[in-house]
Design a protein around this nucleic acid. Sequence first.
DNA 1: TAACAATCCATTGACGCCCATAAAATTCCA
DNA 2: TGGAATTTTATGGGCGTCAATGGATTGTTA
Lengths: 163, 163
Amino acid sequence: MDRFVSTFTNKVDAKGRVSVPAPFRTVLERDGYAGGIYCYPSLDAPALDAGGERLAKKIDGLLAGLPDYSDERDQLSVALYGDVQVLSIDGDGRIVLPQSLRAHADIGTEITFVGLGDKFQMWAPERFEERRTTARAKVQQHRKLFAAGSGHSDEDGGGGARE
Amino acid sequence: MDRFVSTFTNKVDAKGRVSVPAPFRTVLERDGYAGGIYCYPSLDAPALDAGGERLAKKIDGLLAGLPDYSDERDQLSVALYGDVQVLSIDGDGRIVLPQSLRAHADIGTEITFVGLGDKFQMWAPERFEERRTTARAKVQQHRKLFAAGSGHSDEDGGGGARE
DNA sequence: TAACAATCCATTGACGCCCATAAAATTCCA
DNA sequence: TGGAATTTTATGGGCGTCAATGGATTGTTA
């Protein structure tokens, strides 16, 4: 298992700490965990994107093609590196989300962790529910395209959540 | 973690001192910190560029490509080296920005440090907010281009929908 | 000796680290 | 197979350390 899957909802305590779901921590360790997870506001959703080294390398890759000292590169770097926060995971598997990130995702006392394969997202549970609803509708629309191959079609998205 | 990431905003005290964010100092040390950081006005922004040895080597690399005694090299040398200042970091992790540099970036009582990977920039917080906005817009524009390369596209933003 | 710069010291607030508890899941054994 | 024992997780709280910041002190130079 080397990908982030499933959704989990955990509580934010008085000090702003949240437990990263254990399965996600496992993935992070295999991913070459180097002192922290990379986290940044999602560009087009009230959510946070996060991941380990693999995600960091991906960001590097995006910039790799651009020439040094170009205005172009500097600008993209601001958004790609400047918006990133490195969150350290404490001994109990918890992180603390800075105020700025929490604001972007409208996060209060609970956080929903959503596995997306290479990375995962963090949502305010209410926001995620809205999104999940519309996402399902989209899946329905496109189902024919997927349908052909595997007889196994468990797409309900509720999978594995311990709730 | 061996690159500059995140943004931090610190205060400039009455004597012009600013704390370099601790994570940046860590990167500088790994980078082969030799008594000071290299700092110069950004070529195309009201900001300051700064970094350690790696940055210095990169500048060297740019010039290495050009023929000696060429006009082009001379001009570029002046542009790249001419305005460089070596700023020493005191025992408490602080630097003092010379007036000339501060003027270029319009820096007052607060400075925003922005990690750009190999180097970092220093901005007046207000100016930086503008830049950040446009930078995000630029990333939006380029997202489709990025998505092409790696099979698993980043930033789907589609909430729970897994591909 | 005045002005400036570099070093040192002190305070405060945030963060990392440790421990305790409770619930859930897993293992083990009859 | 059922249930008890053990291990993992999630969550809450206390405490020490470090970073950021402000101020004092020493040293240097004109």
